[in-house]
Design a protein around this nucleic acid. Structure first.
Lengths: 190, 190, 190, 190
DNA sequence: TATGAATGAGGCTTCATTCAT
DNA sequence: CATGAATGAAGCCTCATTCAT
């Protein structure tokens, strides 16, 4: 993280924890401050507003995810293998940072400024997935479709996997990932 | 709708409109009352609380959706045709009631009482999709997988379609539905 | 006062007292509420904001002053007599509502919205004085000058009288008024 | 200025600018520090408090004004000419330092310690005007009245000129000054 | 001398809910 | 059934001041 000293990190950690567990609106600034072990004023010294904290978290979060994906895929040659790896990485990340994803999912539907910004950030992330899909299609490994919407579908299946594990407290990453990949690659038809 | 007189219906309509456009927390009781053209006290005469109104909407909404699905599929014989129709119906419904779905999507992730109840309602709805999937699998029309998780994936792809149309203001229901079905049935692999 | 029920009047009275004694910024909403004997929420039920209360007071105050002036002058024929009476009325009012005038005087110099509005209200009041001055000039009772600026000077002399009585705790209205009138009418030159 | 090194002067200049434009309460210490180009801590090294800065400005400001008046009048013999010059000097100063005067005018009405001190300073300034008036009266050049209150009226007319120029954005110093002198010397009566 | 991160009291405002009519 | 005035807890944010470096 850049431009982040110790105190700001404390606030960041406290905030992501609260936002994830209780959502944006239910999380109070007092709570974050107390949880971070700093005074409320300190929080406002480092962030302009509650919204600003949220945005900072989203930015950092997506950055971390994108980095992880790059790290894990750049040494791979086979496009399909890359996609498969992306699936695995996603399931891992989602399982590891469930609360972070829930925060995003609860905030991406409205029309408040914060929510529009969130969708902008996500758009960049979708573009990344789209890039990988296009590469695979270019080399004839997958169907040549409207890759933009396919990228969204990819995201959708991932979401559904979260919901499933949420509702069933399923923690077996390997199984989840395999089902994910199967579905993505082959659909349900015979 | 049962046990719903004229005034209660007014409140219901106003509430769904507000929740859809602004989310649960950002919608105020004053707003609903004003939009419904009744006094705030009246609203509390018909509903115990703001949460109660929300729950009422969710219950009614899912009931309507389920009814629509049944109406449109019960005369069909071919299981795959049924699934295909469900896809179409969903895209239609989502496009028609996009605000209602956004409301659900923003509220299904947290751990507040209201949100847990919402997930319970959704569980019933997932079961319905699962039933159709199982029927199709039983008759060897589709792959025989863990139908529970497939039902969730089905939901996920639908969500992603909402996001896509949200971000691109795409309104062509036919195209969206076709992409949806293709993806569901065949995945992306060659 | 119009559209003012009992509670709103209570708030009005409490607010004018506080604003006058402590100025706009030093007066807290809690204070007004407590002094009015109502809950803070009640205050916001009747007024949109602290600024709104202030504006309401200014509007009512100037209205009362203008009414008093009209009441006391409309039966008079002689223009100079009218002016003289206006002087008396002003000194009386200022003496009676010293705190109200101090509030105005402390708030009329800045560029905040509230302060611009205040000056707009005062402009109307200045116009009233100007009207009387012009009448007197038309009938050759006083010098024919730029009556607009003379109206302001009139106001200025009044202010200075407040300052004087403020600093010397002078309460003799009659004497103050006579000095006021003398100065206005004849200046200091021989 | 005495005991004023470079840094303190920077703060002084920044503070007077801010106080003038936004008033005492609306001006923040951060703002002054930033505008002065120093850290907030530095500001507190040179001044004990925000109030202290304000007081320092008032003291310096009135000192400068008094000096200017003395400079411009001490070589004059004729008392009336002196008064006339004082009028001109005032209008010039007010026009030149309009923000400084607005600051004073907004702060001279309350009962906070700072405001009481301000009135004390002003009292000295009024005494100066009174001195000139008394001299002129002694030599039979102007009416022999209660010179104390006349000094205040003098101030009042000056204030009204500020208001006028504020409201009309009138910048013609010469005209304003002439009207000022005329009014002071001859009043409005015929 | 100078800095700027940290503080926390205190301010304004919102809003779900109640209750007397 | 319906009303709407009243409530007060709780939320977000500001800002003068302090203090360790």
């Amino acid at each position: 993280m850049k431009n982040v000293n110790k105190t700001k990190k404390l606030i960041f950690d406290a905030a992501i924890k609260s936002f994830s567990q209780k959502g944006f609106h239910k999380t109070t600034v007092d709570e974050i401050a107390e949880s971070a072990g700093v005074a409320k004023g300190t929080l406002y010294y480092h962030f302009k507003s509650k919204e600003e904290i949220f945005k900072f978290i989203i930015d950092e979060g997506t950055r971390i995810i994108e980095e992880e994906i790059l790290d894990r895929t750049e040494h791979l040659e086979d496009p399909v293998e890359k996609l498969r790896t992306i699936c695995y990485v996603h399931i891992e990340l989602v399982t590891k940072h469930v609360e972070f994803f829930k925060t995003i999912l609860s905030q991406m539907w409205g029309n408040e400024e914060r929510q529009n910004q969130l969708r902008d950030v996500l758009a960049g992330y979708f573009k990344l997935i789209e890039k990988y899909l296009t590469e695979a299609a270019d080399e004839k490994y997958i169907k040549d479709k409207n890759m933009e919407i396919i990228a969204f579908n990819f995201f959708g299946v991932m979401i559904s996997t979260i919901i499933y594990s949420l509702m069933h407290r399923e923690k077996n990453v390997k199984d989840l990932a395999d089902t994910f990949v199967d579905f993505i690659m082959g659909g349900i038809g015979k």
